[in-house]
Structures are given as structure tokens and as C-alpha cells.
Design a binder for these strands. Structure first.
Length: 421
DNA sequence: TCTGGGGTCCTAGGACCC
DNA sequence: TCTGGGGTCCTAGGACCC
């Protein structure tokens, strides 16, 4: 039996999440801004039609916003994450295997279904997600993941909301109508390099000899070409591999010169990262800290630096990581600059169950520390994030990113439940 | 004035060893 | 005058995704 992949993809996901709780936004052009209200990360169809590009800086859009009466919203990731989990729970019921690929996309295995069954599954998924969650989704189906991704782009332009590349003719039509830069896995750089050797469409890429593709790009683009030909190279990943790194970083609302405030922001990032690390059941042996001034500033003398600390033994303990971060910051901080962004990166992971400690390890202390972390995580999980926090994170949070147009935490905070009058 | 955050993978080149 | 070659490992940088 040949494989059949489906991808379920929410339409304009963040914009649609906002509309679920604010129906007045239906049919209106809306854009969602990144952290710090920096640039556009999601657009409704109406905003796309106006010509607003993905990643466009917000400050450059002021006149367009006024002219078209665009609704601007700061991103609310707690809300989107929650809606995402609900969407995946619904979709998972429709396939024995399911790979959550991103916040708004999920691959399913449709391998043993007939055409009729595929059609009815697609209608059912779309209806149920719309009815239970208020979210519009599109579905693409094909013999490979890459073809399914091509199909979902076609689906979004059709009223049925799904499309199956089922026949050879449909495959060739889909490839012909897809530009090289719109293929999953081919970004701006590779598409430019491929255009230079007259590979313009997905069909051109599928017809291009592997060694030509490899010469312009790398082995991954060769795999993509195989997938376009209908040869499946990328399998469903049912169980996600454990993470290899965890980053927490932010651009600050205002530039920061003060060491204490910078350190407070980094303490906050470290606590957040450590919590994620414990949740994944892993420990880190290495932590990096980076700080930098505003890279867009015209002023001379910009500065950015990072420092990496290798710990004596792997840990998931917040205080141990905080102490390393403090040391690292002292190495790279220079008082003559104002900093725009900072972050930390945990690396070099091993599973918590692995016992590889050094000679000077004190298992009893480690055990007590671990209990403390468990209690803190439990309190924060039950009573809300930051109910208990480290003093080094401070209370003023003068570094917080801008987020002036954020919607409420409709699904995760009792005080912000939506009111029905 | 104002430009995101969080991941993964591949590759070239340097360090090191024999 | 004239100074090897090949393997492995690591890392930084670049590419991709959403």
C-alpha cells in the first residue's frame, strides 16, 4: 500500500484565534504583531489582500493602518498555545498516527483510506474544528509530506477547503503552478540559487538532476526534489525527539544600560528555561548568555557578545543555572552601552535518569534541590506563572517588551474570562 | 523613534592525531 | 629551495521551518 499523508493547517492561525473571542473582527483586515510589537507575524486574508507582507516592521505601516482601518493586535501566545492544544486533540481522533508539526499544523496518516473515505474525513475534520473551536482549517493530501504541503496551499484557494493530489496529472498540475520559493524546504537563498540555473517552478526542481541541485544547495533540497517526484523521504514523526536546546530571549521595550536590570531579565529567562528543561525530563551541562545593543541603530560602536559556561555536572536546578548566568554576564557586560536584547541558551542535554556526575558531587544536596524545584513548579502550575519566583528576577520588570494591544487570556485566567451579556 | 522568538539540520574548515 | 596524507571530531555560520 502506498503512503498517503495529510496535513491539517489552520487558516491565518493567530488572526483566527483572535476572532474566536472577538467575532467583531470577522471580515476585517487584522494583523498580529511579534513580541515587543516589532513586526507583523500573522495577517487575516483581508490584510494580505491590502498587500501587508509577513515580517514587515510595524512602524513602517502607520499610514496603511490608518488608511485601511486595520485592526492591530499584540501577540498573545498563551491564548494561541491553548487553542492549538485543543485543535490537536480534536484532529488526533482522525488518524492512528499524528505528528504535531507546528503550533497550527499537524500531519496525519491517511495511507489505508479510499478516495471517498479521505473526502469524508476531511469534511468531518473541518466541520468539527469549526464547530467545537470556531477555527477554520484547510487540509492537503499527497503521497509525500512535501506534496501534502503543496496540496494545502491549493486547498486554501478552494471552497471545499481540502485538496488531494491523487493522480499523476494532478501532481504535474500542482508542480507546474507552484513557484520554487513556495516549496516547503526551499527558502529565499536556495530559490535564488536555483533560479540562476533556470529552476523556476516546482516542476523544474522535480526534473532537475540531483547533482545540479546538490551543487547549488544541499542534500535536503535533493530530498525535497525526490518528494516532489512522489518518492517519500520524510516520514511521520509520531513521538517527538527530546529537545537539544532551549532558548529564552527578548527584545526590551526600552534599551537597558543598568547591570542590575539586565541581570534581572536574564534571571527571569533562566527561570523560564529551567522550568521547561525540568518539564522535558532533561538536564543541561552548558549554558550561554548573550547581550547586544540595537543592531538597527545608526550609531557607531555597537556591541554584542556571548559567554558560555560548562557546568561541572548536568543540572536542571534553577539556582545553579542562575549562578552560572551571573558569572557569564560579568564577563561580557560593558557599562558604556545600552542593550536592546538579551537571552540565554541551555545546551548539551542528557536525560535526568542518566547518572554521570563528577567526583565532588553531593547526591543528598542534589536530591533536596530537586524536591524544592518540584514544589516550586507545582505551585506555579497550580496558582499561575510567577506565583513563586527568584529574588534575582526582581519585581519591577523594567525590561518587559512592549505589548500594548494584547487581547485577554480568555482561556487561562479566571479573571479574564469573556463576559456574555 | 520604532525591526520577534524558538527551534533543527548541514557544511566547511580548523584542530588534532597518527 | 624542496616539509604528507588521511581520518575524526568540533564548531561557527548559514540555511531552513513556523
Amino acid at each position: 500500500m502506498n503512503k498517503i499523508f495529510a496535513i491539517v493547517d489552520a487558516n491565518n492561525f493567530y488572526a483566527s484565534c483572535e476572532r474566536v473571542f472577538n467575532p467583531a473582527l470577522e471580515n476585517k483586515p487584522i494583523i498580529i504583531l511579534s513580541s515587543n510589537d516589532g513586526c507583523v507575524i500573522a495577517r487575516s486574508n483581508e490584510a494580505k489582500a491590502i498587500g501587508i507582507k509577513m515580517g514587515e516592521p510595524y512602524f513602517k505601516l502607520q499610514s496603511l493602518i490608518k488608511y485601511h482601518n486595520l485592526k492591530v493586535i499584540s501577540s498573545n501566545f498563551a491564548l494561541y498555545g491553548d487553542i492549538s492544544r485543543r485543535m490537536m486533540t480534536i484532529v488526533e481522533d482522525f488518524s492512528p498516527t499524528c505528528e504535531i508539526y507546528s503550533i497550527d499544523e499537524c500531519f496525519l496518516d491517511f495511507s489505508n483510506l479510499t478516495d471517498e473515505q479521505i473526502q469524508s474525513q476531511c469534511q468531518c475534520i473541518r466541520d468539527r474544528v469549526k464547530k467545537w473551536l470556531g477555527l477554520p482549517v484547510s487540509i492537503g493530501i499527497g503521497a509525500t509530506k512535501t506534496l501534502a504541503k503543496l496540496a494545502v496551499n491549493i486547498a486554501k484557494k478552494r471552497s471545499e477547503g481540502y485538496y488531494h493530489i491523487a493522480t499523476e496529472l494532478q501532481r504535474l498540475e500542482a508542480l507546474k503552478s507552484t513557484n520554487i520559493e513556495d516549496i516547503w524546504g526551499i527558502g529565499a537563498s536556495y530559490s535564488n540559487k536555483l533560479k540562476a540555473i533556470s529552476v523556476i517552478s516546482a516542476l523544474d526542481l522535480a526534473n532537475c538532476p540531483d547533482d545540479h541541485i546538490k551543487k547549488q544547495t544541499n542534500i535536503l533540497a535533493v530530498k525535497t526534489a525526490h518528494e516532489l517526484r512522489g518518492i517519500s523521504c520524510i516520514d511521520l514523526v509520531e513521538v517527538a525527539e527530546p529537545k537539544q536546546s532551549i532558548t529564552v530571549s527578548r527584545s526590551f521595550g526600552n534599551e537597558i544600560r543598568d547591570y542590575q536590570i539586565l541581570n534581572q531579565s536574564l534571571s527571569f529567562f533562566t527561570s523560564t528555561a529551567a522550568e521547561k528543561l525540568r518539564k522535558s525530563g532533561q538536564m543541561a551541562k552548558s549554558i550561554s548568555v548573550f547581550i547586544r545593543t540595537n543592531p538597527f541603530s545608526k550609531k557607531p560602536n555597537q556591541y554584542g557578545n556571548s559567554a558560555n559556561i560548562t557546568l561541572n555536572y548536568p543540572t536542571d536546578s534553577t539556582p545553579i543555572l542562575l549562578s552560572a548566568v551571573n558569572t557569564a554576564l560579568q564577563h561580557i557586560y560593558k557599562p558604556d552601552f545600552s542593550y536592546k536584547k538579551a537571552g540565554i541558551l541551555l545546551n548539551d542535554f542528557c536525560l535526568k535518569t542518566t547518572k554521570a556526575f563528577d567526583l565532588f558531587d553531593k547526591p543528598q544536596l542534589r536530591e533536596e534541590g530537586s524536591k524544592l524545584m518540584t514544589v516550586i513548579d507545582k505551585i506555579n502550575h497550580t496558582y499561575g506563572r510567577q506565583t513563586v519566583f527568584y529574588a534575582s528576577s526582581g519585581t519591577a520588570q523594567q525590561w518587559l517588551p512592549k505589548s500594548s494591544m494584547k487581547s485577554a487570556s480568555y482561556t487561562s485566567n479566571w479573571d479574564e474570562l469573556i463576559l456574555a451579556r
